[in-house]
């Protein structure tokens, strides 16, 4: 199993390299255009050319990439073309916001979806209807529209929560939670919609296996069958659903950060892209790729631990 894990990891790092190379080449392909975007529409052609040379944008692309990569492995992702702020610093400032949002959401998603999904699969009835309803609702209403509705309802009409802004957990834990309540709720509806119905599916799959009938025939209580056998076998597919949900949250966070003006990586990506600040955009892409790599690795690890077939040789 460790061999497979290691292999997956090597593969993921390879993908990271290829994707970073491709993204870099694409984004830095138009050096003059970048310099013009940095200087603004009033700059003359000579000014632009000089700035492009100064930023190193006139070198061959592969050379630029390798010097960027050489810096990247040392933790230096370059600096913003606009503000001169090191990209790594910006990431360090903004990552906690995005990670708070994602981690909080995924934990709540896991807890709520498991409860809803398992209950729906086992007992059916109104919980099942509820799960189906949430699934349709969550799929139909995009996160940013839910966010706007939440702001309208709980920040403007009834001012319970702040409409925008972020408070660091180190400054004020309660304020932190307060500032994240609406953003997390906006994300949750979509994630629960998907995860709960998927969990419901994997639990009913596990429940309809032949061995469940045999276990029943042995006089084992329904509770023991569910907790010991059904959940155990539904856990693998469930974990994969959660890891996919986490990856989906990367995109969701981007919209939500923009709506709630949270100073996270997603917001940075959006602002930098619109301003033409290419090194920053590159930094956010790398951040996202590394997050994906970590999540996939963890998912592989836990699924591997759960599955006896991968455990032995």
């Amino acid at each position: 199993m460790f061999r497979t894990l290691l292999l997956n990891l090597v593969r993921a790092v390879g993908v990271l390299l290829v994707v970073s190379f491709a993204t870099y080449c694409l984004m830095f392909s138009d050096g003059i255009g970048i310099a013009r975007a940095v200087l603004g529409p009033t700059a003359t052609d000579t000014q632009v050319a000089a700035r492009a040379a100064e930023l190193g944008l006139t070198r061959p692309l592969y050379e630029q990439y390798f010097s960027w990569l050489a810096g990247a492995v040392r933790g230096d992702l370059g600096s913003s073309f606009l503000t001169g702020q090191p990209v790594t610093d910006a990431m360090a400032n903004r990552a906690p916001v995005t990670l708070s949002l994602i981690i909080l959401t995924i934990i709540l998603t896991a807890v709520i979806s498991v409860i809803l999904g398992v209950t729906a699969a086992l007992y059916g009835g109104w919980v099942d209807k509820l799960v189906q309803f949430i699934a349709v609702l969550g799929a139909a209403v995009p996160g940013f529209i839910i966010a706007i509705a939440l702001i309208f309802a709980f920040a403007i009409s009834i001012p319970l929560y702040p409409a925008t802004g972020y408070i660091r957990i180190t400054d004020d834990p309660q304020g932190w939670l307060w500032s994240l309540t609406l953003p997390v709720t906006a994300l949750l509806i979509g994630t629960i919609a998907n995860a709960a119905s998927q969990f419901r599916g994997s639990v009913s799959d596990a429940l309809s296996q032949d061995y469940v009938r045999t276990l029943r025939s042995r006089g084992i209580s329904e509770r023991a069958i569910v907790f010991r056998h059904v959940l155990r076998n539904a856990a693998g597919p469930g974990l994969i659903v959660l890891s996919l949900t986490t990856l989906g949250l990367l995109g969701g966070a981007l919209f939500i950060e923009s709506v709630f003006a949270l100073p996270g990586v997603g917001q940075l990506a959006n602002l930098s892209a619109q301003a033409g600040d290419v090194p920053m955009v590159m930094g956010t892409v790398i951040f996202a790729m590394i997050l994906i790599l970590v999540v996939n690795f963890l998912a592989d690890l836990f699924v591997g631990i759960l599955n006896p077939k991968s455990r032995i040789k």
Binding site: L254, N270, G276, V285, I292
Partner: peptide, 18 residues
């Protein structure tokens, strides 16, 4: 698999810079 493990929306936004 590689495409699926890409941060799709982030890339879409990165594309805007280009």
């Amino acid at each position: 698999d590689v495409i699926m493990s890409l941060p799709g929306i982030v890339l879409l936004i990165a594309l805007y810079a280009l």
